[in-house]
Structure formats: C-alpha cells, structure tokens
C-alpha cells in the first residue's frame, strides 16, 4: 500500500518523521483522514490526538496549538507542542488536570477561567493519548 511521509514539528524540534498509510486528525471543523495523494490543504487542528496508521498498527500523538499542511506526498503538522503517546509524562498531565479543575471551581476572573479550561483540555487530551501507549 502506498504511503505518505508524515512529519510533526514543534519549536523544540521534530517529534516524528515516518511513512504512514493514513493520517487522521481532528481539525477545527471536523475529523480529517488523509491518504496518500491528497490535494494540497491547510487546516488548523484542535487540541487533539493525531492517529497514524501503518500495517495494522496505529501510532498516537497528542498535539496542541497546531495545524496541518498536506501535499500529495507529504503531510506536515506544525504544533506548539506535540508528544508521542509513549513520551507523555502521565503524572505531570494528571497534576495539570487537577490543578486546572481546581482553578475552574474557584471561579476567578474571566481570563483565568478560559486559560484553565484550555489547560484542562490539554491535560485530558494528553492523558487520553497516553492511554494508547503500547
């Protein structure tokens, strides 16, 4: 089966660069599945997991603050942060989740509220992705 070269790049360096048969991810307005030969496309991604499939195996990567750039032979995901399922620090994500939940209950200023929600979102996403680690 044909493959598409996929790379995930963050400001702290590349996270992954491999060939995959299919890339699925959650864009701002819905799920996207990219197969080789896709037309050039740019789409922002939600804080979500990216699923990469090859030979019956699925790799999971958590991304936040990212977008997807597709060319027929290449998929590039630029994200402000991204971790493979096996690299996620579960304890830290768990702590971040609790911290954010606590802050949400405190009900402070509006801005903090939004930030806490985003932090919670990221933490939940990380934990979700980490649960897929092999």
């Amino acid at each position: 089966m044909s493959t598409v070269t996929t790379s995930i790049v963050t400001p702290d360096g590349p996270v992954l660069e491999e060939d995959y048969e299919m890339v699925s991810c959650t864009a701002e307005n819905g799920e996207l599945g990219i197969l080789p030969g896709h037309i050039p496309l740019v789409a922002p991604l939600k804080v979500s997991s990216v699923r990469l499939q090859i030979q019956g195996r699925t790799d999971y990567v958590s991304v936040s603050g990212g977008f997807l750039e597709v060319r027929p032979d290449r998929v590039t995901i630029l994200a402000q942060s991204a971790e493979r399922a096996s690299d996620i620090d579960v304890d830290r994500a768990e702590q971040a989740k609790q911290r954010a939940e606590k802050r949400l209950q405190d009900k402070q200023a509006n801005l903090d509220q939004i930030r806490a929600e985003q932090a919670l979102n990221r933490a939940i996403n990380r934990l979700d992705v980490a649960s897929h680690a092999r």
Partner: peptide, 13 residues
C-alpha cells in the same frame, strides 16, 4: 506552485 485548499477558509486560518 502548490496552491492550497483552505479548510475552512484562508481568513479563519
């Protein structure tokens, strides 16, 4: 040479 499709549109992106 590679003109992109934008999802949803260029402005949103």
């Amino acid at each position: 040479q590679s003109m992109y499709e934008f999802e949803p549109n260029a402005e949103e992106i």
